[in-house]
């Protein structure tokens, strides 16, 4: 352990602002990227289900008309 206390750890020997800025930006961007990638998966599945349901409705409608 390199620090005596938690406030010592946050201060980083006076360079706290730059170090926490760097780590904050890094983790902010990484978490944003991960969330975006999962959102893409969800968006595709939603869109895919909608398309399937629509195709099904059209099929049912056509069948009803030709009866």
């Amino acid at each position: 352990m390199q620090f005596d206390s938690f406030s010592d750890f946050l201060a980083m020997g006076g360079y706290g602002f730059y170090i926490w800025l760097a780590y904050g930006l890094t983790y902010g961007l990484l978490i944003g990227l991960v969330v975006y990638c999962f959102w893409e998966v969800k968006a595709f599945h939603q869109n895919f289900r909608q398309k399937l349901a629509r195709a099904q409705r059209i099929k049912q409608y056509q069948e009803a008309e030709h009866r």
Binding site: M1, Q2, F3, F9, M12, G13, G14, Y15, Y18, I19
Partner: peptide
């Protein structure tokens, strides 16, 4: 937390 400081660049 555990790695040492640099002798020139300190905690940065």
């Amino acid at each position: 937390v555990f790695a040492p400081q640099d002798y020139q660049q300190f905690d940065t």
